[in-house]
């Protein structure tokens, strides 16, 4: 058993991970780390390599090249050790349809070596209430709705209280209320764990994740916080100012001379002022308007929409 010391409380480290399916390179030299307390959002178009990366990390399929470590254990060399430390929700949460929810969770708990039987029973009880599954505990899984099935998948992933959680589209197919519930559970346990989740939903990344990685055609395009990501939008840090009592072109000309205004455009009686950098120019702008004694009708800061940035990055033609 070889143990690697990972830097700065990193629970997950992935280095140069590559996976070929025949001539097709699904994952191309992907590297990243996830620290304790972090929730990493994995984003990308369908077929970008998100699920494949997760499958390698959880030990389901071997990598063609590269390495992955979980709490210092190599996924390739100490597969059992790493699997013990990971809770995994595979895509569309597969489960044995003929078992009841309770039987299924007891089965997973036993495979996870939660012993003896008394502890197992107790833990399943806790998990049933944590995931709001008490009502359906005696129901067979094939009779459950998609939302419940997803929660069963989530329940089996956290039953052994793992330090690392890998969730492949955890809120897929849930209604907005259920989504909110699952998000609440995830944030509730984030402090003590390193969590990776994949999703298509950008608002989810905003609501949940402390960091996001965008992967497209097997390659990492972006690895930053949601706030940083938002700044990539061309309209980010742009102000819309509606003014009265002065010729708009005159006002625009005056503004252009100021250092804090990167670019100035007009739209009817509205000024569009964009900052030259990433720092907010809000106070400077307000001060200037006061000095000039313009009467303001409106003053609004625009911020980039994540999905637009995402589209620009992953689909440059559009």
């Amino acid at each position: 058993m070889s143990k690697e010391i990972l830097p700065q409380n990193e629970l997950i480290r992935v280095g140069g991970l590559t996976k070929d399916f025949g001539p097709f390179r699904a994952v191309n030299a992907v590297s990243f780390g996830v620290r304790k307390g972090e929730i990493l959002g994995f984003l990308g178009p369908n077929g970008a390599g998100k699920s494949t990366t997760m499958k390698i990390l959880t030990g389901f399929i071997p990598a063609t090249a590269g390495e992955a470590w979980v709490e210092g254990f190599s996924v390739q060399k100490d597969s059992l050790e790493t699997r013990r430390r990971i809770g995994y929700l595979p895509e569309s949460s597969p489960a044995y349809p003929e078992m009841t929810v309770e039987e299924f969770l007891l089965f997973v708990a036993e495979c996870r070596r939660i012993n003896p039987r008394k502890n197992r029973q107790k833990r399943v009880e806790e998990i049933l209430s944590l995931c709001f599954l008490q009502d359906v505990r005696k129901q067979t899984i094939d009779t459950l709705s998609k939302g419940y099935k997803q929660r069963v998948g989530f329940a089996q992933a956290v039953i052994h209280d793992p330090p690392v959680l890998v969730l492949d589209e955890p809120t897929d197919g849930l209604d907005p209320n259920q989504k909110q519930e699952v998000r609440k559970i995830i944030t509730g346990m984030a402090k003590e764990k390193a969590i990776i989740l994949s999703t298509h939903i950008l608002e989810e990344v905003e609501a949940l994740c402390s960091r996001l990685i965008i992967i497209d055609r097997g390659k990492i395009l972006v690895d930053e916080t949601p706030a940083e990501f938002r700044q990539r939008h061309e309209q980010h840090n742009r102000f819309r100012i509606g003014i009265e009592g002065i010729e708009i072109s005159e006002a625009a000309a005056k503004l252009k001379k100021q250092d804090f205004a990167g670019s100035v455009a007009t739209e009817g009686q509205t000024l569009l002022v964009k900052a030259p950098g990433r720092e907010s120019i809000e106070s400077a702008l307000l001060k200037f308007c006061q000095q000039e004694q313009w009467s303001l009708k409106s003053f609004r800061k625009e911020s980039g929409r994540l999905d637009e940035v995402f589209r620009q990055l992953t689909n440059p033609q559009a």
Binding site: K55, L80, P94, A95, Y96, V108
Partner: peptide, 14 residues
């Protein structure tokens, strides 16, 4: 077919 083997082989068993 049902994908449960992904679950099975990511549990800590050989």
């Amino acid at each position: 077919r049902s994908g449960t083997w992904e679950l099975l082989f990511t549990l800590p068993l050989t």
